[in-house]
Design a protein around this nucleic acid. Sequence first.
DNA 1: TGGCTCATGTAATCTGTTACATGATTCT
DNA 2: AGAATCATGTAACAGATTACATGAGCCA
Lengths: 178, 178
Amino acid sequence: MAKDRKIDMVILGILAHQDSTGYDIKKSIDEGIRFFWKGSFGSIYPALTSMESQGLVRKVESEKEGRGKIYYSITEEGRDNLRQWLTDERTSNELRFETLLKLFFGGNVKPEVTIHNIEVFEEQIEKELVFLKMCKDNLSRVLDEKDHLYFYLTASFGVDTCESYLKWCKESKALLKE
Amino acid sequence: MAKDRKIDMVILGILAHQDSTGYDIKKSIDEGIRFFWKGSFGSIYPALTSMESQGLVRKVESEKEGRGKIYYSITEEGRDNLRQWLTDERTSNELRFETLLKLFFGGNVKPEVTIHNIEVFEEQIEKELVFLKMCKDNLSRVLDEKDHLYFYLTASFGVDTCESYLKWCKESKALLKE
DNA sequence: TGGCTCATGTAATCTGTTACATGATTCT
DNA sequence: AGAATCATGTAACAGATTACATGAGCCA
C-alpha cells in the first residue's frame, strides 16, 4: 500500500493523462489546479524518485538521448494506485484563509484596516477569476476529449466560488462602512 | 520581529478577546474558525511556551491555586504584534480540496465514482452549513458587542461559500449524469 | 555574449499532526 | 465506582517550502 502522500496522487493523475518531466508536472500543477493545490520542485522530484523505486512510475527511455530531460510514465501498478485513491471515500478538504483570520480578529484594529484587507483579497480573487474563466472557456470548446469534462467541472467550481467570494466582499465592505 | 507562524497569531487573536487556557484555545478554534483554520494541542502548547519566553503572552496567576489550569493573557507586546500582523498586506489564502483533485482526475474511473465523490462532499458541506448558519444566527443577536460584527462577517462568508458549493454540486451531478 | 527559461536535484528548515503519557475533575 | 471530559505536555514523524547549486539550450 502506497503512502498517503497527496503529491504522489497528483503526479500519478498528471502522468495518467500524459508522460511528463518533473518540470512539466510543476507547470501542470501551476496551470491546471493551482486554484486548489500547490506543489514545489522540492516535493516533486523526491516523490518521482521514490515512486519509481516503488514501481508506480518509470522513466521513459529518452529518444535521441534528449540529455537532461527525464520523462516519466505511469505504470499499471501506478494506475491501480490512482484508481484506488479515487475510489476511496476518505477525502480531506481544507481552507486556510489568512484573510478570514484577519477578518475574525478585526476588532483589534480600525475598521479601515479590515476594509483594506478585504480589498486586497478582492483583487487577488478578481485576478484568479479572469484566469479561471479563461480556462473554463477554452475547455468548453474541447469537451469531446474524455478528461476535459472533468477539467471543465473543476474550473467551473473555481469560477462559481470566486464569484461568491466577490459578492461577499461587496456586502461586507458595505456593512463595515456603516 | 516575531516569526511568521500563523498559530501564534491565532492564539494572540483569541487571547486578545479573553484570557484562556491551552485547552480553551483549542475549543475556540474548533468552534469559531474551524471552517477555515485548524489547530492541534501539539502546536498550541509549544507555541504558548515559546510566546511566553518572547513576552507576547504571560501566565495569569491562578487565583485560589486552580492547580493544573493555566490561564494565559496577552501582553502589550503581544497586542502590538497582533496589530502589526493585521495591518500587514501579505496574506496567504489556500484551498486544499482533495475532492477537487479527485474530480480533476475523474477521467480515470467510471462517472459513478465521481458522482459519488461529489455526494460525499455535498454531505460534508451540508453539515458544515447547518453549523455555520447557527453561528451566524446567534451572532446576529449580539451584534452590539464590538468583536461580534467581525465574527458575524466571518460566519457569513462560510454560509455564502457553502451555499455556492452546494449549487455547484447539483449542477455538476446533473452534467455527469448525462 | 548576455540573459532568460528550461531542467534537475539537495539540504536546511519549518510547521504541524498523531499518538502517547499522565492525571484531575465532574457527572451519573 | 466508573466513564467522560477537562487539561497539559512530549516525541516521533510527515510533508512540504525555500534557498541554493548546477548547468543546458535558445534567442536577440
